[in-house]
Design a protein around this nucleic acid. Structure first.
Lengths: 158, 158
DNA sequence: GTCGATGGCGCAACAGTATAACAGCAACCC
DNA sequence: GGGTTGCTGTTATACTGTTGCGCCATCGAC
């Protein structure tokens, strides 16, 4: 459980989030910012209760609703994503434009890669609209083995 | 909570499941068959505890592990799917060939449509393999409004 | 037949995830 | 000042899923 710099989001994530919320007229309060900071600093997705634990750092006792409310806000603003298959959250890699990404989730090392593949979006939307369905939220998660782990794990070429 | 014939799976679902398990040399025990029957008879996805409730029908008292074990089996055999975004399960519409479908989930009426769109699969797989990722399980769920509800709800064309 | 191995199931307890409901408080508008 | 709104703290609880143990039926070996 290393604690070093975030892989998910760059250094300026928080500052960009500040600017973005300012522009939108919504409030990135200290609690919300804290949750975002924890997520951005993590190399892997975190569960709500892990975030809670991280927020308790010093001594303050916090309860789940605090974290969930902050997450709700951040999800609404597109600053974080929820990984349904993991019950966990990650900082968004490019929050500047609203989107619902696709996620490659390595079961071996926990690494999550966020994609924004136009082909996937289009085939998904066209398949949906072919049935008259009106999409609102898309959940696309692929569980498997990342390149590095697949390599280390023994060069599976099958 | 109507109980009439299943929309998700046709009439012969159970019989096909019997044959399939026989062929594979695995046992579709009464409990497992019961869970499958309940799912197939439901017009909408059911949570594990809803299935549990349905199984208690008469008087027998059952515990969660019973249902979860049956579901594990059915999932392994591809006879049911889990909808991660709903924490719920549906009978598979075409269990004869293994696959991981895509799901259109209506937030208004609960209807779930299972797709098997080649385009989506291919764009997903090609995007994954472009990064060297080795996919094992795919979760593709689109939440929104089904054609009927969209129509009734007031012809939203936006 | 009976012995051990296996797999399915019943049962109790518990772990993990998420929400409801209510209270306090600060900021803002009038 | 007084009402309103939005954010947070707190307690309790609901919902989802798992662990661990023990029983019993089945099946093959002997």
């Amino acid at each position: 459980m290393k604690k070093e710099g975030g892989c998910q989001a760059g250094k300026g994530s928080l500052e960009r989030a500040d600017a973005l919320c300012l522009r939108r007229g919504v409030r990135l309060t200290p609690q919300r910012r804290r949750v975002l900071a924890i997520l951005c600093a993590s190399a892997r997705p975190l569960g709500a209760y892990e975030i809670l634990e991280a927020m308790r750092d010093g001594s303050r006792s916090l309860a789940p609703p605090t974290v969930y409310r902050a997450l709700d806000f951040l999800l609404e603003q597109g600053l974080v994503h929820k990984l349904e298959s993991l019950h966990a959250f990650v900082g968004c890699r490019h929050p500047d434009h609203p989107h619902s990404g696709q996620f490659l989730i390595c079961r071996s090392c926990g690494l999550v890669t966020e994609l924004e593949d136009r082909g996937i979006c289009e085939s998904l939307l066209s398949a949906a609209s072919a049935t008259g369905f009106v999409p609102e939220r898309r959940v696309v998660e692929v569980l498997g083995t990342c390149a590095r782990c697949a390599e280390e794990g023994g060069c599976r070429n099958d």
